[in-house]
Nucleic acid binder design. Structure first.
Lengths: 325, 325
DNA sequence: GGTAGTCCACGGTGCACGGAC
DNA sequence: GGTCCGTGCACCGTGGACTAC
């Protein structure tokens, strides 16, 4: 009997050249493996093109797109191992806090303007921030956080816009809760005890302290209930950010975002397993459910804004906030 | 009664990842086991680094250091089983003898110079060695012997220097005694009956044949008394070499050297047990006591050198010898 | 039965080559 | 024609799965 031939050559799933290799989860030749690796490592710059050479090796962009479409697993890239992933999120969070606390917006930009050019400046000495100012910085630093995620390097600018627009406001609210929770507060607040709602709110006739208070406390009460760590919160927010089901995304970006969401999700799962042994699925579900609590909070906030708009149409809301409702 | 839970996951003592394995004497995951195995087997090169990623798996050096610090037992590596160990020492001794008999120093190097670059050349035909020449080769070949010990591969160059400096001269003297003893001599001598002391010694007024003779005979008389074998002598010298209590060593190197000393020591113990059954502890103690006899001989030698220096300050001692007093 | 050792697939790295400017 | 950048080959180290003692 002849020995089993294991190294049979098959066409590379990316470029069709014959190969006996298996890389990043698919049958693929070494050159395609290297293209995928290098784009994922950002060893080489990656620009989108319009050539559409689907199975050709001549265009990096199309070859890389074929890698994604062909099922190459981003999670096989070692920098997406859990420990490294979480370390990076923590670093990004530090950076976000630094921006939030130490900078201020130069002008009242809309989200579109911000994405093109807007950069804040170092905060003036002794300037006193209103709720409007803080919320601007909260949103700005959240967008910065999102743009520091590895995946944005491989999204087209159009998809990146959709990606950011979808989650930035929601996540900014989440980050207010995170910061307040980490500062041992029971409710959302800005630094120096500046309320999250502008002072002008007391002029609204249907003013409902109960509703406002629910907005301020709901998320944080859940954080406390589950005794969440910053690592868990950062993974949850990243899972919320990486939502592949947004309308308008290209299939490519949907695929990429979805892969990243799975990576972050499995890191969160690992943390839960580590913490709770047998009961980890409960914790994991609870943490993922924070996304719904956030949605509920946003819904409440929406109601408040509607009231606001009705009774105070001239309220000077920042463009970044206005755009979100 | 519930069954004993044997496969409980615990954090790896090296990298903290969960594992249910137990390798080389500590709770440790398979990857850490493999790193330790490979460095110890010299399957892969091992360089020291400065990164200091103590509990990270990303740096081989730090991971290996953590293995040592975490208590992984070098003795569990099978090549450190007694038989292999002794075979290796015998081979190293052959090599040492080959160097000693067939080479000569190119120039008069100091120990520091020697450690960096010095290599001897094949002995010229018909050249007649003086005591000075032989002692140089004795020291050189002893250093070579020391550098052939496995453990030097994992010492930093600084610790290696300390390690060699501490024992090389002492051991060179021991090796003179070993060779003379194996050649059935009653006293230390160099080949062709060249005396271990240089001819110039007769010019010293306080010349004490009795002291010189004690130096020449003390060790060898003990060898005869205990009827030691070459295996035993090589283990003894290696135990002397692997002295973890030298000042200046890093904790890491101290730990490594100490582990090796224990390995050689237990090999010697096994030989004694094999040879003497019930009375092995006496033999074992006697053999270890040879270290003190050596120290005594070195002390005597020191006295002679002091006399020498006083009466013959211009005596052309080799740098390797000068450095040792 | 448990632990040390071996095998091998695959991810990562270094380098030489080739085309573009 | 030098330099820069991307490519793809060859090799290395890792760690999972298996074997042997």
């Amino acid at each position: 009997m002849s020995p089993r031939v294991s190294l049979v050559s098959r066409p590379c799933s990316i470029c069709n050249n014959l190969t006996d290799e298996f890389n990043y989860g698919v049958i693929s030749c070494n050159p395609c493996k290297m293209v995928f690796r290098r784009v994922m490592k950002f060893e080489t710059k990656f620009d989108h093109c319009l050539c559409g050479n689907k199975k050709s090796t001549s265009c990096r962009c199309c070859r890389f797109s074929a890698c994604i479409a062909g099922g190459m697993k981003i999670s096989c890239i070692q920098k997406y191992k859990h420990a490294t992933l979480i370390q990076n999120l923590i670093k990004m969070d530090h950076k976000r806090n630094n921006t939030f606390f130490n900078y201020q917006m130069c002008e009242d930009l809309s989200l579109d303007q911000l994405m093109i050019s807007g950069v804040p400046k170092i905060k003036d000495q002794g300037v006193r921030f209103t709720s409007h100012d803080w919320v601007s910085m909260e949103i700005y630093s959240t967008i910065e956080f999102m743009k520091n995620l590895d995946l944005v390097h491989i999204l087209t600018s159009n998809d990146l816009m959709i990606f950011v627009k979808n989650a930035h406001f929601k996540c900014a609210i989440f980050f207010i809760a995170v910061r307040s929770y980490m500062a041992k507060m029971e409710f959302m607040t800005f630094p120096d005890n500046v309320d999250v709602f502008p002072e002008e709110i007391s002029n609204v006739p249907d003013y409902s302290p109960k509703l406002l208070n629910r907005i301020r406390t709901l998320l944080i009460s859940k954080f406390r209930e589950f005794d969440v760590s910053i690592e868990e919160l950062l993974l949850v927010v990243t899972i919320i950010i990486c939502d592949p089901s947004v309308a308008g995304l290209s299939e490519f970006s949907m695929n990429v975002i979805s892969q990243y969401q799975r990576i972050y999700s499995s890191a969160l799962q690992a943390i839960c397993q580590n913490k709770c042994k047998a009961s980890w699925p409960t914790r994991f579900t609870n943490l993922l459910f924070l996304s719904n609590i956030l949605t509920k909070t946003i819904k409440d906030l929406d109601d408040v804004v509607v009231l606001f708009k009705y009774h105070q149409p001239a309220l000077p809301l920042r463009k970044l906030v206005k755009d979100s409702f």
